[in-house]
Design a protein around this nucleic acid. Structure first.
Lengths: 175, 175
DNA sequence: GTTTCTAGTTGCAACTTAAAACTTAATCTA
DNA sequence: TAGATTAAGTTTTAAGTTGCAACTAGAAAC
C-alpha cells in the first residue's frame, strides 16, 4: 500500500518548542495542501484527486497513504463497490481549513490579484467569509507591529500584570 | 547567486481559478515556512538561518534567493559590514503571518499537544492572541459545517438575495 | 599581510519525483 | 459466464533535487 518508503531526506524536525516543524512534516510536503483542497472540494476517490490535481499516480498513492497515516484523511473501502476507496477528511484534517484559507487569501492578494472562485460563504446568509486575521483576546484585529513574542513561562496569567524584572529580555531569541 | 536552477520537477500550477497553487509554488517548498518563521523571529543573516533551522547551505542559499525573487524577503548588503547581507520580511512576507500561525496552532492542537513557546502577545496588554478562526461578515466564528462554496459570479452582492434558478448546482464542482 | 568571517558555490552520492506501463481485484456487459 | 472495463494501486527507469563536505571570494580584524 505504501509505494515509497518515507523520506530519507532531512526531516523538518522538532527543534525548540515550536509546533510549526511538526505541522510541516506532514503538510509541508509538495502536493499535501493541494490534496487537502480537493478533499474540501468533496473529492474522495483516487482517480478524482488524480484528475483534479494532475500529479503522478505513484506520488498521489504515497501522499494519500501519508495523510491517512497522519490522521488527516480516513480511508474506507466503499461498501457498495469494493473496487472503490473513499478518502475523507477527519476532524484533524478539517481543522486545517483556516490555514488553507489564509494561504489562499494571501495568494489572492499578492500573487494572482484575482479573487479565487469559488468562494466560501456562510450557509446562513450566503455572504463571503472575511479575511483571516489575527485577533486579540478581546477580538481586535492585530497586525505584526502590534505583536511581540513572549516566553510562555513569563505569561501574564488571567489579566494580572506580573512583576517581571527584565521584561525586555523576553522578546529576544524566540523559539 | 542562484545555486540551483529552479525546479524542473512538476510545478504546482495555476489550474482553475484558485490562488492556492500560486501561493504554494513559493511557500509549499520544503523549508520555506521554517525560513519565514526564523525571519519573524528576527533572524536576518545567512549563518543565522543556518544555525536556527539546520538545513544544508546550498539549499538555504537557493531558498533565500527564491524567497527574495518572490518578493517575500528583501536582500540588502549591510552598510557597516560589507561581508554581511540582511534578509528582511517585506510586506508580502509579513502578510503570511496568519497562515503561519494557523499552521502552528494546528500543530499545537493535533501534533505536539504542547503549547509552543514563545507565544505571540498583544503588545498593548501582553495577552496572547486568540486561535485563528474563520469569520462571517458580521464576525461570527464559522466552522466547516457552517460554510459552503459558491461560484463568484453567483455571489449575492451587498445583501440582496439574487433570484438564482438552480442554486443547488452552484455548490458542486468547486474550483 | 595573514587570519578570520560571511555568504555563498561546486561536486558528488543518495534520494525523490514523474511518466508510463503493469497488476490485481471487482464490476459491468453481452 | 467469458471478456471488457474500471479503480486503486505498484513497478520501472530516467530525470531532477537534496545533503554533505570541501572550496572560493571578498571584506574586516589583528
Amino acid at each position: 500500500m505504501t509505494t515509497l518508503k518515507h523520506n530519507e531526506t532531512q526531516h523538518i524536525s522538532d527543534e525548540g518548542d515550536c509546533a510549526l516543524p511538526h505541522a510541516l512534516s506532514l503538510m509541508g510536503e509538495k502536493w499535501s495542501f493541494m490534496i487537502l483542497r480537493s478533499a474540501f472540494d468533496d473529492v474522495r476517490h483516487f482517480e478524482g484527486f488524480l484528475n483534479k490535481i494532475g500529479l503522478a499516480r505513484n506520488i498521489l498513492a504515497n501522499r494519500l497513504a501519508r495523510l491517512t497515516q497522519g490522521g488527516i484523511l480516513a480511508r474506507t473501502p466503499c461498501p457498495n463497490d469494493r473496487r472503490k476507496v473513499e478518502y475523507r477528511l477527519t476532524q484533524k484534517g478539517l481543522d486545517l481549513l483556516p490555514a488553507m484559507l489564509a494561504l489562499r487569501q494571501w495568494g489572492e492578494k499578492w500573487a494572482t490579484g484575482i479573487p479565487s472562485t469559488p468562494v466560501l460563504v456562510d450557509q446562513a446568509d450566503r455572504k463571503p467569509i472575511k479575511e483571516i486575521t489575527i485577533r486579540s483576546h478581546d477580538d481586535r484585529v492585530l497586525k505584526w507591529q502590534d505583536l511581540c513574542w513572549v516566553d510562555v513561562s513569563q505569561l501574564d496569567i488571567d489579566g494580572e500584570t506580573l512583576d517581571i524584572v527584565d521584561e525586555e529580555a523576553l522578546v529576544k531569541n524566540i523559539g
